[in-house]
Design a protein around this nucleic acid. Structure first.
Lengths: 191, 191
DNA sequence: TCATTCGGAATGAACGTTCATTCTTAGTCG
DNA sequence: CGACTAAGAATGAACGTTCATTCCGAATGA
C-alpha cells in the first residue's frame, strides 16, 4: 500500500463521516477507524484537522468544477452556456449526495467564508464560469445590469436550495423539473 | 430584577455570541458571563444547551414573521403580496445582522433540518405567507405550475444569498437594488 | 541493522452539566 | 417596626466526558 492510498482513504472516510454526521459528529478517531488506519497516522498526511477539512473540500471542488467545465460550450450563446452549467450542477449534486452535503457544511462555516472571500478577489486568471457568463451576458446585452454577486445569487441560489430539497425528500427532481428550474433561473437574470 | 429579565439577558447574550462566533464559539460559561449571570443560572431557565439554542431561534423567528405579516396586503394581487414579503425580508435582515447570522447558523444545522421538516408538514392552520402566495398564485394563474418547495426556492433563495453578500461586504444593497432583486425573483416564478 | 512508517494508548485542554452552598426576598411574629 | 425564618433563586467550583494531538514502541522494508 503506497502513500497516496492511505491519504485517499483518509480523505474519503472524512468526507463520508462529515457529510453524514456533520463536522462535529466525526472525531479524528472515528475517521481513522473508518479509513482503517491508526489515529496518529492521519497526522502524517495532514498537519491538523483544519487542513484535513480544507483538503477534503478542495478534492470535491476540483472534481465538481472539472465536471461542469467538461464540454462547456464556450462559443455558443450565453443562454446555452448557462443551461449547461445549471443542469450540470443539478445532475452532479443529485448523483453525489455526500459531496453535496459536505460542501453545504463547508460553505456554512468559517472555512466557507474564507474561501468565498478568496474567490471573489480571485485574479489568478483561472477560468471561472460565473465570471464568464456574467461578462459575456453583459456584453451581448442578454442579462440584466446587476452586480456580479447578485447575478450569481439569482442564477444559482435556487438551484442549490432545490438540490437540498431533493436530498431531504421534499421534492423529487427529475430531468423535466431540472429543466424548469434552470429555465426559471434564467428568467430571473435575462433581460 | 424579575425572572423574565434574566431569561431575556441569557437569550440575548446567546444570540449575539452565537451569531458572531458560531454555535461552537460560544460555550455556556461565556454566555453566562456576557449575560451577567452564573453558569448554573442558565439551567434554571433552559433545560440544556439544545433548548437554549432552539428558544433563541423561536424568539427571532416569531419577531421576523410578525414583522413580515405587518400590513400584509392580503386582498391585493399576488405580485403585490410577493413584493411586500420580499422587500420586507431584505429590509429586516439588513437592519438585523446578528439575527440574520444566527438564523443562517441555525438553518444549516441539525436543528434547522428538524425545523424545516416540521414546517413543511405543517397543518396547524397557522397562517403561512409562503403557502398563501403559492396557492393564490396558482389559482389566478399568475405563477408557474411547480411544486411548492421549488416555488419557495426560486422566490426566496436569491434574496437570502443577497443579504448574506451584503453582510460580508460583497455588495451594498440599497432600496433600488432591493427592488431589482425582488423583481428578478418575481420574474423567475411568474408565468 | 537502520530508517521510515504505523498504531493506538496516553495526554491535556475544553466544555456541558451538576450540586452544595450562599444570597435574596417575602412573609410572620413579638 | 425590626428581628427571625423559610423558600427558592443564583452561584461557580468541581466532575465526567469528549476529543484533537502527541509520543513511543512495534512493524516493515531496504
Amino acid at each position: 500500500m503506497c502513500k497516496t492510498d492511505k491519504r485517499d482513504d483518509i480523505l474519503s472516510a472524512a468526507m463520508e463521516l462529515m457529510a453524514e454526521q456533520g463536522f462535529h459528529g466525526a472525531p479524528m478517531a472515528m475517521i481513522a477507524d473508518k479509513a482503517g488506519v491508526g489515529a496518529g497516522t492521519i497526522y502524517r498526511y495532514f498537519e491538523n484537522r483544519d487542513v484535513l477539512i480544507r483538503d477534503v473540500y478542495h478534492m470535491i471542488y476540483d472534481e465538481f468544477v472539472s465536471f461542469l467545465l467538461n464540454r462547456y460550450p464556450t462559443d455558443r450563446p450565453v443562454r446555452e452556456c448557462f443551461f449547461h452549467i445549471g443542469k450540470g450542477i443539478i445532475d452532479y449534486l443529485i448523483r453525489n449526495p455526500l459531496k453535496f452535503r459536505y460542501t453545504e457544511q463547508f460553505h456554512n462555516s468559517p472555512y466557507g467564508l474564507e474561501f468565498r472571500k478568496l474567490k471573489l478577489s480571485n485574479d489568478t486568471g483561472e477560468f471561472d464560469f460565473g465570471r464568464d457568463l456574467y461578462y459575456k451576458g453583459l456584453k451581448h446585452q442578454v442579462i440584466k445590469e446587476i452586480p456580479l454577486p447578485i447575478f450569481f445569487d439569482l442564477a444559482f441560489a435556487p438551484i442549490f436550495w432545490a438540490v437540498r430539497d431533493h436530498h431531504t425528500g421534499f421534492v423529487v427532481i427529475d430531468d423535466a423539473l431540472a429543466e424548469v428550474i434552470v429555465s426559471s433561473c434564467w428568467d430571473s437574470i435575462r433581460i
